[in-house]
């Protein structure tokens, strides 16, 4: 996976998107809206409109635009692409067990997900800080989660780093789901599309008011909990519950995928 050009083209695409978002945030209307929001709450623009705040905005936008798609694409390919192209048949002519091979593939997916989020986090922070010339204080606003928080620079940096870690954990669901479908007998594109469709369907249903009482069953209701690490104080009980749910979901996805692959015939 890490020897493929496409992997790094992806990193390049993310960089371009982040820089574009950064540029768009400097448009007068965007800036004014941001300023108004801060002013309405008694804060000044310059104090909070620095690298830290902008990088959180950039991360959310980038991940929503490209992150899920890219993770689903990479993880959806990891097994099914090799089966489709025939390299899997070559690999499985060697004395390696299918389970061991899958563990290696899954581990590389996991590493890729974590490094991608780390890359996004670092690039967003560096680009925004260089652009604004200072880190500034952190301001996080997510009305749908009831989140409005401000932190000074040191606390903000710590919250930002921790937030990236939890985002990486949330993102594992996307790569694990695509990985699972990749283990089934299907085209790589199908694994990606099914994963994205499920997540899209999940988001849409979650936001329909009639399903409010079922909210806790929706995957994205839990993946979004990474933003709750910016609450002050953090409701660790709620965050912990969500990540236990995600852990169980991840384990289920991976086990189902592995069992399916270990028991299926390879095309001959």
């Amino acid at each position: 996976m890490f020897a493929r050009k496409r992997t790094y083209i992806g990193y390049g695409a993310f960089f371009v998107v982040q820089v574009t978002i950064l540029g768009l945030l400097q448009l007068p209307a965007a800036r004014e809206s941001f300023e108004q929001l801060l002013k309405d709450n008694g804060y000044g623009l310059d104090e909070f409109y620095g690298g830290l705040t902008l990088s959180v905005v950039m991360i959310v936008a980038t991940f929503m635009l490209l992150g899920a798609l890219y993770l689903a694409l990479v993880a959806g390919d990891i097994i099914s692409k090799e089966v489709e192209e025939g390299t899997m048949r070559m690999v499985l002519a060697r004395p390696i067990s299918r389970l061991r091979l899958l563990v290696i593939k899954w581990a590389s997916c996991t590493v890729y997900t974590v490094t991608l989020i780390a890359f996004l986090g670092v690039v967003a922070l560096v680009a925004a800080t260089l652009y604004r010339g200072y880190l500034g204080k952190l301001f996080v606003f997510a009305p749908e989660e009831g989140l409005f928080a401000v932190f000074d620079t040191a606390e903000g940096l710590w919250r930002y780093a921790r937030g990236m870690l939890f985002l990486a954990l949330s993102a594992q669901v996307i790569s694990n789901m695509a990985f699972m479908f990749s283990c089934f007998r299907m085209k790589p594109a199908a694994a990606t599309i099914i994963t994205l469709s499920i997540l899209f369907f999940d988001v849409v249903l979650r936001n329909i008011p009639y399903f409010e009482s079922y909210k806790r069953f929706f995957i994205t209701n839990h993946t979004v909990k990474w933003t709750h690490t910016f609450f002050d104080p953090v409701a660790w009980h709620t965050v912990g519950q969500s990540y236990i749910y995600l852990l169980a979901l991840n384990a289920t996805l991976v086990i189902v995928g592995m069992v399916r692959f270990c028991t299926r015939d390879l095309k001959v």
């Binding site: 020897a3 493929r4 050009k5 192209e85 025939g86 390299t87 048949r89 070559m90 002519a93």
Partner: peptide, 10 residues
């Protein structure tokens, strides 16, 4: 196999 397949980019 009939059509040996490798990682073409390597």
């Amino acid at each position: 196999f009939e059509s040996p397949v490798f990682y073409n980019y390597l």
